[in-house]
Design a protein around this nucleic acid. Structure first.
Lengths: 135, 135
DNA sequence: GTACATTTGTTCGTATGTATT
DNA sequence: TAATACATACGAACAAATGTA
């Protein structure tokens, strides 16, 4: 269950797998602070670039969130939202750009659900858009 | 409209912004091959790491897809799918792990829409799951 | 409030391996 | 075979944000 530098699977992916397993098993619960990058290097080996690659994988999957000067924590699961759709309404799921992420105040790895209304029988005008995000 | 190394905004984000704009404007249409990393360095400056960071941003946003030995292309927009939900059915949107990505055959930046059925009044058993992906 | 240590962010350089053309 | 292009990995340096004594 350790990291094998001679494996076909890249070291940074092995480390991401290992940490993902710890998150899913509850060994690293939501809100928990992950070890800092230097501690990861001591514990698992590899250079800083490799450690940061593994973090980037988990961040992109929405499992962790990183803050400069503080550290990296396990994210709390996204909340659920309910959206009512009518005939002709359209909805697409996509990943926001990082500019949108800043404006919406969401972390990396959080998909958004964008609804375009077809009829004016609700509180919106036709063509208006609603964007739903999960914290 | 060029890149300013002295700006507060990191160079790799500026480059990502610039390329994202070219993609959204149609200057880089779906399927188009982006310049190689060395050409990007000649054209925009910066080291290879900086170029690759910008690419990683756009890949995570689902705008481009990269293949080793071939290059990086603008992705075609994701297809639309329709899912019928009944009372009690639950649906969550999330980003797959890279293991799931390989199994489902989807690129980076593609969110999945996972439906959990509550009733057995359709073709599925209660608790069964359907995963919808957009190409 | 200041000073300092800690932690992540960004950028550069170099080298080697693997896949495609 | 050779050239091209991306993937992985290591090392180094400085900047920026945070937390603490």
């Amino acid at each position: 269950m350790d990291i094998d530098p001679d494996s076909d699977r890249p070291v940074y992916r092995q480390l991401a797998d290992l940490l993902r397993e710890q998150i899913h098993s509850g060994q690293l619960p939501p809100g928990a602070l992950l070890p800092s990058e230097p501690r990861m290097q001591q514990r698992y080996g590899g250079c800083r670039d490799t450690i940061r690659r593994a973090m980037a994988v988990l961040r992109a999957e929405g499992l962790i969130a990183t803050k400069q000067g503080e550290g990296t924590r396990v994210r709390r699961s996204a909340q659920r939202h309910t959206v009512h759709l009518g005939p002709g309404d359209q909805a697409i799921i996509r990943v926001p750009s990082d500019l949108e992420r800043r404006e919406l105040g969401v972390d990396e790895g959080v998909p958004i659900f964008e609804v375009t209304r077809a009829g004016a029988d609700r509180e919106m005008f036709p063509g208006d858009r609603t964007t739903i995000v999960g914290g």
